[in-house]
């Protein structure tokens, strides 16, 4: 599976195709009527391209931190537990949640291509798709994690999970110690995409 996709710039060197002319005409007429603005269109496109966002995953993590029963269900069958929160849209992939503990650190990679649980984590970061990450995370996970700023004691076991078309992984990070009493919503804001891939820890304050 390749994940190339073309984004050429905004300018057309040649004459416009009929459909290009038509879409410009629509935009132009709507601009005149004050119904759209170029900036607003740009914002919509970039929001949908980039910002499906890791919020869904963060909500699930925060829920698991405050609700031990939900955590059990998440670790037993993440697909079903996520659905409880209204998080779906997975296209036939099965979600598996793996829990970080003081003894075990989990990290996710896709060695073959760039399989990623996008309905849960949004769009994958560029490095996730890069060949060095994909090969090195398997061969030397501690070194790569160190480069991401996660320095693990030798006694901590590292588990590297290789995503596939069928299975996508979500790392359940450790809850920071200084977050006692925080609300679920406030906790969700602490949870980063990288922490749910396993290349960072969740910091107590942001």
């Amino acid at each position: 599976m390749s994940d190339r996709h073309d984004h050429d710039g905004g300018h057309h060197p040649g004459p416009l195709s009929p459909i290009e002319a038509r879409v410009r005409a629509i935009e132009s007429l709507l601009l005149e009527r004050g119904l759209v603005s170029s900036d607003a269109i740009d914002r919509v496109v970039s929001a949908y391209e980039k910002d499906i966002g890791p919020l869904n995953g963060a909500r699930a993590v925060a829920r698991a931190w405050v609700d031990p029963e939900f955590k059990k269900r998440l670790l037993a069958d993440a697909t079903a537990a996520l659905r409880e929160l209204g998080i779906g849209g997975l296209q036939g992939e099965h979600m598996v949640a793996v829990e970080n503990t003081p003894q075990v650190h989990n990290v996710v990679v896709c060695t073959l291509c760039s399989c990623y649980p996008w309905p849960v984590l949004g769009l994958p970061p560029a490095w996730y798709k890069s060949p060095p990450y994909r090969s090195r995370m398997v061969k030397e996970p501690r070194a790569v994690l160190g480069e991401f700023g996660v320095n693990l004691d030798p006694g901590v076991e590292v588990r590297v999970w290789d995503s596939s078309a069928e299975i996508r992984y979500l790392v359940l990070p450790e809850r920071p110690k200084e977050t006692e009493g925080m609300s679920e919503a406030a906790l969700a804001e602490l949870v980063t995409r990288d922490a749910m891939i396993g290349v960072s820890r969740v910091a107590g304050r942001r």
Binding site: V23, E27, L30, A40, I41, R43, V45, Y48
Partner: peptide, 8 residues
């Protein structure tokens, strides 16, 4: 563009 116009 046309995606952004409709969704917007």
């Amino acid at each position: 563009r046309v995606f952004g116009i409709a969704v917007g």
